[in-house]
Simulated scan of single mutants.
Amino acid sequence: MSIKILTILTLLVPTLSAFSQEKMVSVNGVNYHVLTTSLEQRKPSQPVLVFENGMGMGLGNWNTITDSLANDAPVFLYDRQGVEKSEMVYQQPTPQKIAANLKLLLKELKIEPPYILVGHSMGGIYVRAFAGYYPNDIAGLVFVDPADFTETKADWNQIFRTIGVSEKQIDEMLIKRLYTPLKVDSSRYAAWSEGQVLTDLRKTDFAELSSLPIPQVPILFFVGGKLEVPMERRSKDYDHERFFEVKNSSNMLRWRRFIHASSKGGALIYLSNSGHFVHRDDAAIVIGNIRMMLKAMEK
């Protein structure tokens, strides 16, 4: 195994108590783009905020909240394989592989546990995986409008039954969603391959993730309640607004159960004026709740 660090750029960004370092880190011969803030001021056993981006998104998507949070805790951000400055890898980014890569990155940078994992969208899948494979490393979990890793095919079908879609249509939509092959998009391979991984997980009702332990730590879910699909892209076969409402309600029921699986509890925050990018639409609320989580851990 060959692991080395290649520092290509260091950014000194003074704030009240934080500065950032941007690096390229090589793990098993693959270079990853990494940004850390406030690590030098880390106190003994203080949790580090570790961020997983949405599907095909770069680490800059978190900039609405990370600068502020870096005054409260050390921050680690990175781009997964093939995203932004990180090197392309033509392999399926399965949850187990991504978790193992992240573990190696943190280890090489000498960023020891505990971690508070924060994941948006597809990043929520990867946060759930890391927390399950390395539960003893985790101090808290934060899911920002995540892809629903608790969903089953039966759950999905029931949403459409609730809004009055016929069984024939439901079967046709399920085949199109999960079993219709898509041509490889080599120009956007990172996002395409993550989408394929998500589809494969849905086919198995997320068996890999549901078999993993849930760490006994505080858990936060932030849920966007605003439908952002443009009118011209909404379904002509069913009421898209009603679908979004029922789907959100179904997801939140299962996410509450996930929270209750931890003895440390947590919260589900529904933000009716936020879309999928909750951390950008309601940054202050996301920052405030993560700060409360950090404060509670100091006691």
Rank of each mutant, 00 (worst) to 15 (best):
Y179A: 01
I170P: 02
G266D: 09
S2K: 14
L253G: 11
M293I: 04
K236F: 04
N63R: 14
S17H: 12
W156T: 01
A100C: 01
R242W: 09
S187Y: 06
M173N: 09
G58D: 13
S2Y: 12
L220C: 02
W255N: 06
I3A: 11
M297F: 04
V229F: 01
R161W: 02
L6T: 12
L104W: 01
I5W: 04
N273T: 15
H240W: 11
K43H: 10
E194L: 03
A70G: 15
K85E: 14
Y126V: 01
S2E: 15
H279L: 08
F130V: 02
H240A: 12
L294S: 08
N101S: 05
S86L: 07
R280E: 15
E87A: 08
N31I: 00
Y189Q: 02
T162P: 00
L117D: 03
P14Y: 07
L77M: 15
N31D: 15
A100Y: 10
L49N: 06
N61A: 12
E208M: 11
A129G: 11
V142R: 05
L253Y: 11
Q41A: 10
R254N: 10
T15N: 13
G288K: 07
I259R: 12
F149D: 08
N31M: 07
L212C: 01
L77V: 01
E241T: 11
I285R: 15
E245G: 00
S68P: 00
K236H: 07
L59V: 01
T152L: 07
P95N: 06
A139R: 11
A129K: 08
L6N: 14
S26H: 10
D281S: 12
L117A: 02
R242T: 07
K183E: 13
V197Y: 03
A18Y: 07
D281N: 15
L12D: 15
D148K: 01
L253P: 00
Q216P: 03
E172R: 11
E232H: 09
S20H: 09
T204M: 04
T199S: 05
T66M: 03
K85Y: 15
E245C: 00
K236M: 06
M57N: 12
V197M: 14
E22G: 01
I214W: 07
V25R: 09
G140C: 06
A73D: 05
L182W: 03
Y270Q: 13
S186Y: 11
V223F: 04
E108I: 06
D171G: 04
S186V: 07
E208S: 09
P218R: 11
R234T: 03
E52K: 08
Q41V: 00
P181G: 06
V278L: 09
F130L: 11
D282H: 13
M293N: 06
Q196S: 02
D79E: 10
N289K: 15
F19L: 10
Q41E: 11
L220D: 07
E40D: 13
E245W: 03
I214K: 13
P47C: 07
K43N: 07
T150A: 03
S45L: 07
K203D: 05
L109H: 08
H276D: 08
T94L: 08
M297H: 12
R257Y: 06
T7N: 13
V142T: 07
S272L: 05
M173S: 10
S193L: 04
P95G: 11
L141Q: 13
E194K: 03
G132V: 03
L198C: 00
I116S: 06
V75F: 03
R177Y: 03
L11K: 15
